[in-house]
Design a protein around this nucleic acid. Structure first.
Lengths: 162, 162
DNA sequence: CAGTATCCTGTCCGATACTG
DNA sequence: CAGTATCGGACAGGATACTG
């Protein structure tokens, strides 16, 4: 009996992504890693997470290829946890989550904001198509890709909105 | 004893967002809602989720303000579940999750892809600043916002990368 | 069809104590 | 400092049976 279905085998990239970073703490650990934290202790203090959970989540993030455990000092052996390229590439998700939270869950105004460090002006994250530069909106569709199974291909015979 | 800390009171909008949609199924339900599904049965079949869980997650999403339960037929009473504006506004997160998954978790190629329905050309989601149009990259910083507590303001005295 | 009602299990997570 | 070990509680999630 499974506690939860593994989303890893699902064809949907959203589901697959969730399979890697779906745990509560994982995304916050990633956030702190982007903030520049690298050490066990820093994460523990910043997050107020129990040490055993931190160990588990860090290990999971390493196995998922988002972070890397690196020996930065021998004798005594000391490790730091740094983002891989895959992990750094997760930032767009953090930005959109950040923006959504600020838009909808900050009734008394933003407690933290994104800014451009050079101008100091606020940054408002929008998702656009790299090629056309046009914002994604109602016009985006999901279609079967090159690696789609016949079954999946049938499901997306008619493009579906996302 | 708490099972997990509520992220709702945290000042970080990422944490607050996770408090609303952090459950595994919630995001997949949102995805399916964007796909156009509205009925209990449709969600159940699409997701392969146990009905009691679907009930729970739908209720939570309604309470969180992302979806709305609407009577679409009396006698017998029938309800449909539709996205609110807040819920639709969550799509940028889905897009970036989708793109990340396709970039890093699709070794045999994309099984599904995003396309522009008019041109049929692939869409590659990138996060840019609405004002300048420049892609967010290493240059983005988090600073204390107008509603920041003094404590928070100290933490972000020096802007922090995100 | 659209759920509700039970029951069960896995595990996420917190708390605490302990080690090289 | 950087974790490991152990314990226990809450609940997400699965399976199934049942109802208007």
């Amino acid at each position: 009996m499974m506690q939860r279905t593994s989303f890893d085998q699902m064809p949907c990239p959203v589901a697959r992504s969730l399979d890697r970073v779906g745990e509560w703490w994982s995304i916050l650990i990633l956030r702190d890693a982007v903030y520049g934290l690298t050490r066990f202790d820093q994460f523990a203090q910043s997050l107020g997470i129990a040490p055993n959970m931190l160990t588990r989540r860090l290990k999971a993030l390493c196995e998922a290829g988002l972070m890397e455990r690196r020996l930065y000092q021998e004798r005594p052996a000391r490790y730091e946890y740094v983002l891989t390229d895959t992990g750094r590439d997760f930032r767009p998700v953090l930005w959109t989550l950040f923006a959504w939270g600020n838009r909808h869950l900050a009734p008394e105004g933003e407690s933290v904001s994104l800014v451009d460090p050079e101008t100091g002006l606020p940054v408002d994250p929008v998702v656009v198509d790299r090629r056309t530069g046009r914002p994604l909106s109602d016009g985006v569709r999901v279609v079967a890709g090159p690696a789609a199974s016949p079954r999946l291909r049938r499901r997306f015979e008619r493009p579906i909105a996302l």
